[in-house]
């Protein structure tokens, strides 16, 4: 890990001093022990600040949206980040030419307080970046996990119990929209929750409005979700948001063989297209 970190610092300094990129997006140490924070390095001498360890919890793709105006960016990408980048390219949010991707194999990141592997990493099956310009270090082994585990357990439950649990989930939502802010797929310039005059989303914090927000969010991103689990990590109320996202992903995969999003930058998403031979259940 520290070997990769020193390579990363050296490469970042080279890229910046050669003028190939104007900024490197990665991580640096935060204020607390075992805490990192996203870093935006634009001077070669600052490259020493970059870190790469098992506490780099933030994903990087969303930041490119706000930094792309400065010029070409070098972005540190792990499996989840690279899929987010692919998704953003596919959504026309950024061009591949605007990015230099530094691939970093990842072994999962940990919660800084408990030292446990984060939930998003426990269910990860893409630890190596799927797209990169250079890969630092050696590729790691991809774990075999059943990422639909949570969904299957909920599906097996009685409807009443499930409804009760999800209701309490929606009830706890404080609608801070952190899940939207971190999501590499949530890139609408004007989000429906901010369009106050249109009136889709009320401002009250009650069950109906929270449910409306959460279900709309899930449905809106569900067909493009890269399953980075960043929404769930960012949630200050620790809501099991991936239990919804994965349900959509699973259904679309079962029904339309949608596959995994973000593995390449080509093609379209499963709800943006159709096939005349789709399963028929509304006759």
């Amino acid at each position: 890990m520290s070997d990769i970190q020193s390579q990363l610092r050296a490469r970042a300094a080279e890229l910046l001093s050669s003028g190939e990129v104007v900024q490197v997006i990665g991580w640096m140490d935060g204020r607390f022990e075992n805490q990192t924070t996203p870093a935006f390095i634009d001077r070669p001498e600052d490259a020493e600040l970059l870190v790469f360890n098992e506490y780099c919890v933030n994903t990087t793709p969303k930041y490119t949206l706000y930094e792309k105006e400065h010029g070409k960016l070098a972005v540190c990408v792990r499996g989840c980040d690279s899929r987010g980048i692919n998704r953003m390219i596919k959504d026309n949010q950024i061009l591949r030419d605007q990015l230099y991707l530094i691939g970093l194999p990842c072994s999962g990141v940990k919660d800084r307080k408990t030292g446990e592997l984060l939930i998003k990493c426990q269910n990860c099956n893409h630890r190596n970046p799927v797209v990169y310009d250079e890969l630092l270090g050696d590729a790691v082994e991809e774990p075999q996990v059943n990422r639909y585990d949570v969904v299957e357990r909920f599906e097996a439950m009685e409807r009443d119990k499930r409804a009760q649990y999800f209701e309490s989930t929606f009830n706890r939502c404080i609608r801070c929209y952190a899940c939207r802010e971190v999501c590499p797929v949530c890139t609408c310039r004007s989000c429906f929750v901010d369009q106050v005059n249109v009136g889709w989303q009320g401002k009250q914090n009650n069950l109906a409005e929270n449910k409306f927000y959460n279900l709309t969010r899930v449905f809106h991103i569900g067909d493009r979700c890269v399953e980075c689990g960043e929404c769930e990590r960012a949630c200050p109320m620790n809501l099991p948001l991936m239990a919804f996202n994965r349900k959509m992903v699973k259904d679309l995969d079962d029904l339309f063989a949608a596959g995994e999003a973000g593995l390449d930058a080509e093609g379209t998403h499963s709800l943006g297209t159709y096939d005349v031979n789709d399963v028929e259940e509304f006759m």
């Binding site: 409804a163 279900l215 919804f244 349900k247 259904d251 029904l255 399963v279």
Partner: peptide, 12 residues
């Protein structure tokens, strides 16, 4: 609607 119906029924 196929996906949305399943999502609604999943959430209760």
């Amino acid at each position: 609607l196929m996906a949305f119906k399943r999502l609604l029924e999943y959430t209760g």
